[in-house]
């Protein structure tokens, strides 16, 4: 029995899985957090004793949390250095991506870190775009940079 499909190479057909674009609304709590971000404030939610970042619409026990401002400093918990973009092209300047923790909060945020010598435990603060450029997304923060206290150490 001839189980081979035939002579020669297999054919391929080009295609894609695309839409013109996706538009993601921020959600109910997210739109409050977005407004705060546009004002240069990072937020979290308070669930009883716990403070959780980034804010989410519900606490771990499924109850509703309260949105509160969370001020720094943000401490580097982990970081990585990225050399390629998402399509595999080399970046001109390698980018440091850091997991940033808050002393009083559970959870962490992920963002760019601009530091000469990134290290775990480094205390950082966000650098925002100018107010008129902000749109309430995480891109309103350009990057995190070492806080002054950190540079003293």
């Amino acid at each position: 029995m001839n189980r081979r499909g035939g002579r020669g190479e297999l054919l391929h057909v080009e295609g894609s899985m695309e839409a013109d674009k996706y538009v993601y609304p921020p959600g109910v709590l997210g739109s409050e957090a977005a407004k705060a971000l546009a004002e240069g404030k990072l937020t979290g939610i308070r669930c009883g004793e716990k403070l959780i970042v980034p804010p989410r619409p519900y606490c771990p026990d499924h109850s509703k949390g309260e949105l509160v401002e969370v001020r720094g400093p943000w401490i580097v918990e982990s970081f990585t250095i990225v050399y390629e973009d998402m399509y595999g092209n080399m970046l001109e300047t390698p980018q440091v991506i850091a997991v940033l923790r808050h002393e009083d909060a559970e959870g962490s945020i992920v963002h760019f870190l601009k530091a000469e010598k990134p290290r775990v435990g480094m205390r950082t603060r966000p650098v925002f775009k100018s107010p008129e450029e902000r749109n309430g997304t995480l891109g309103d923060i350009l990057y995190f940079e070492p806080a002054e206290q950190a540079s003293k150490k």
Binding site: L10, H12, E14, S16, E18, A19, Y22, V23, P26, K35
Partner: peptide, 18 residues
């Protein structure tokens, strides 16, 4: 609205005809 994200997916495939 603040906080809306837009994204244009680029997902190219080459489907094997088998």
């Amino acid at each position: 609205m603040k906080g809306v994200i837009e994204y244009v997916p680029k997902a190219k495939y080459s489907y094997s005809a088998g």
